[in-house]
Simulated assay, not measured.
Amino acid sequence: MVQVKTPETRVLNLYWWIVWGALLLLLPLRITNGSSTDLLRDTLYVGLTLGCQRVERRWPRAGILLHLVLLFPLLTLHALDPHSFGQRMGGNFVWMIFATTSAWPVFGLTALWGWRGALGGLLLSIIGRAFVGVGGSLWGVAVSAYPLILSILLGLLFYWLMSEIQTLYKKLHETSLVDPMTGLFNRRALNVDFGNAVSLAVRERQPVLFSSWDVNGLKAVNDLQGHAAGDAFLLSFVVALRQSTASSDRLYRVGGDEFVGLHVGSDAGYELYEKVKAVFPAVAAGWVLLEGHGLEDAMAEADQRLYACKAADRTSEERRVDHAPQPRFGWK
């Protein structure tokens, strides 16, 4: 549920900034010096870019992949244009200009998909080369291939750097959202997840249960047996909580012995409490179904029910003590 801007997301956004920046630089030149065919082709490219951006919003990376792949036929059409610079010069210039301009999509494919992108980019370049024609000397073809080779090498370097940065970022991000002792998410993660859970409940009309948990007797365990025993006591509760909840549920430690949970698609708060208590009796819980609640409101309402649960447990314990047989003391 946690949604943040990762380094990968920022790079994908940068791609579109570069595309639109290049268009803004190119269009004035087209308007002043280009032919009507150039303007028509550039208009098609603008429409293609807008469409791919819409795809990107729904399916990340898919829009960029589509945009890069569709660049090749546009570049091929440009190379085949009889009014283009390469066609006017003839020979190797056609292939050199095509290879130079197609270096950008080859770099993009390689930078985002590694060797698979490089092979795909080369294949599309070869297909484009077949359409453009094989005119010119072998030396000219070899020299004009340098931009493609350079774009692949730079793309592979960029792909490796981004993989390393993304891995490091993921580790740091997960560390900042996870409680180190229990392995559950922390309050910071809850602040981000809660809004997403409420939005999901409203959008898909699914129940979302918010539960609050308090471990009883932790202070006594710490005082009598030490903090190591207290930590083991808490971890035994965490094990019971994880065993009793679904794998899709989000569990958080928000205080020393205070925990909360977000349970999407569930409204069975009492059943969950009974299941956990059967494994770990020293616990009290409160819960509330999210219906437009803010986080503080949900915690306050769940805590009220948690305190009522604690009071009921104390009353039940006192009744058991009152009705227990009393020992007899006396002198022999």
Rank of each mutant, 00 (worst) to 15 (best):
D231T: 07
F72S: 05
A103R: 00
K171P: 02
D322A: 15
V94G: 12
L190V: 03
Y252N: 09
R30M: 13
F93L: 14
V192H: 13
E317K: 12
T175E: 13
R319E: 15
V11D: 06
L39H: 08
H83F: 10
M181V: 10
W17G: 13
W213T: 03
P73E: 11
T6G: 01
E258A: 09
C52Q: 03
E204N: 14
E164C: 00
E317Y: 15
E271T: 12
V208N: 08
W115E: 04
P28F: 00
S212E: 12
V132W: 07
V55E: 00
V46I: 15
F329Y: 13
F237S: 08
S125A: 14
Y270G: 10
Y146H: 13
L200P: 04
A99P: 06
L70N: 01
G86T: 03
L262T: 00
V215C: 09
V134K: 09
L234F: 06
F98W: 06
I18H: 05
L27Q: 09
E204K: 13
L50C: 08
G269T: 00
L172W: 00
G269M: 01
G330L: 02
F237K: 03
G51P: 01
F107I: 05
L124M: 11
I127L: 12
D267G: 15
G90Y: 04
N33K: 09
N216T: 06
A278M: 09
F85R: 14
V134E: 14
F107T: 01
H78M: 12
Y159K: 11
L68S: 01
G265P: 00
K219G: 10
L290M: 00
L44I: 13
G133A: 09
T9G: 09
T9C: 09
S212Y: 14
V288A: 02
A142I: 08
G330Q: 05
F233P: 00
V276A: 01
F85I: 15
V192L: 14
R188E: 06
K5P: 03
C309M: 11
L77V: 08
D249H: 03
P327G: 09
G217P: 06
V238P: 05
L123W: 10
R314Q: 09
S35A: 02
K171S: 08
I64P: 02
L161W: 11
R116Q: 12
A311N: 11
R57N: 08
G195P: 04
A308V: 01
D231W: 09
V276G: 04
K275R: 15
I31S: 08
R129M: 14
W59F: 13
G63S: 05
G128F: 05
G183A: 10
R250A: 07
E56Q: 12
H173V: 00
M162T: 07
E56W: 04
I149A: 15
G265C: 04
F233G: 04
E56G: 11
G114D: 01
L66G: 09
L168F: 06
V260R: 01
R54L: 15
P82I: 03
D297A: 15
L65R: 10
T175R: 05
V134R: 11
E291L: 08
Q3F: 08
A282Y: 08
A228M: 12
V55S: 06
S36T: 15
V11C: 12
R116H: 09
A228Y: 10
P207Q: 07
